[in-house]
Amino acid sequence: MNIPNIITVGRVILVPVVFWLLITGQTQVAFIVFIIAGISDAVDGYLAKTFGWQTELGAYLDPLADKLLIVSIFLALGVDGKLPLWLVVAVVSRDILIVIAVILSWLLDHPVRIKPLIVSKANTVAQIVLAATVLADEGFGLGLGWTRFVLVWLTGALTVASLAAYLHSWLRHMSDESPEAGG
């Protein structure tokens, strides 16, 4: 364990805190904790790269912490009617399907290397911006209805496009005989 990994574990610990804050209607505090989590993500990444503190644990834990936070926020906001349920189902289903594909490739002794795709990075940005926008709007009454509407549809489109791109890449990998094929 090093400092970046400890910071990342702290972000994982914030996941149930943010979820609890949201389901108890404390949206302003949830927004602030979300911002703190975002800052901690930047800090642990900076420290890991600057001081060479990158670890295999951090390579898995950091994106997992980010994904857990976003999914928990989407679930809480969806259950509360602040995000459309179709979007919540799409976001969560995409992540579950990707994990299933990775596990299946391992079980079939044809492991896939995870490489973030450009559309996936755009999807992650859209999810973060949408979550921050909804939290800020709900917590501080900013009147961002139109912005939220656009972000919901953009995030939905990017979620579907990202899943399609990963599925295409995975199918190509699984149809290749060599275990070192791209992922």
Rank of each mutant, 00 (worst) to 15 (best):
V18A: 08
W20F: 15
L21I: 09
L22H: 03
L22W: 01
I23R: 02
T24N: 12
G25V: 10
T27Y: 02
Q28W: 04
V29M: 11
V29Q: 02
V29K: 03
A30T: 06
F31S: 00
F31Y: 06
I32T: 10
F34Y: 08
I35M: 12
I35P: 01
I36W: 02
I36H: 00
A37E: 00
G38K: 05
I39L: 14
I39K: 01
S40V: 11
D41M: 10
V43N: 09
V43E: 07
V43G: 06
V43D: 03
Y46I: 10
L47A: 07
L47N: 02
A48P: 02
K49P: 09
K49H: 14
K49M: 13
K49V: 12
T50R: 15
T50Q: 14
F51L: 14
F51E: 12
Q54T: 14
Q54A: 13
T55N: 09
E56D: 15
E56G: 11
E56Y: 13
L57H: 07
G58V: 05
A59S: 14
A59Q: 14
Y60P: 00
Y60C: 08
L61T: 06
D62G: 09
P63Y: 06
L64E: 06
A65N: 08
K67M: 09
L69E: 03
I70P: 03
S72Q: 08
I73M: 10
I73P: 02
F74P: 08
L75R: 03
G78R: 07
G78P: 10
V79E: 09
D80E: 13
K82T: 00
P84F: 03
P84S: 00
L85Y: 10
W86H: 08
W86F: 13
W86P: 08
W86K: 00
L87P: 09
V88K: 04
V88P: 06
V89D: 07
V92W: 00
S93W: 07
R94V: 10
D95E: 15
L97Y: 04
L97Q: 10
L97H: 05
I98V: 15
V99D: 14
V99H: 12
I100V: 15
A101R: 09
V102G: 11
I103N: 10
I103T: 11
L104W: 14
L104V: 11
L107C: 13
L108Q: 13
D109G: 06
H110Y: 04
H110F: 05
V112G: 09
V112Q: 13
R113F: 07
R113N: 14
I114C: 12
K115D: 11
P116C: 11
L117T: 04
V119F: 07
S120E: 09
S120P: 03
A122C: 14
N123H: 11
N123F: 06
A126D: 02
A126Q: 02
Q127E: 10
Q127G: 10
Q127A: 08
L130V: 13
A131F: 04
A132T: 09
A132G: 14
T133E: 00
L135N: 01
G139L: 04
F140C: 03
L142T: 03
G143E: 03
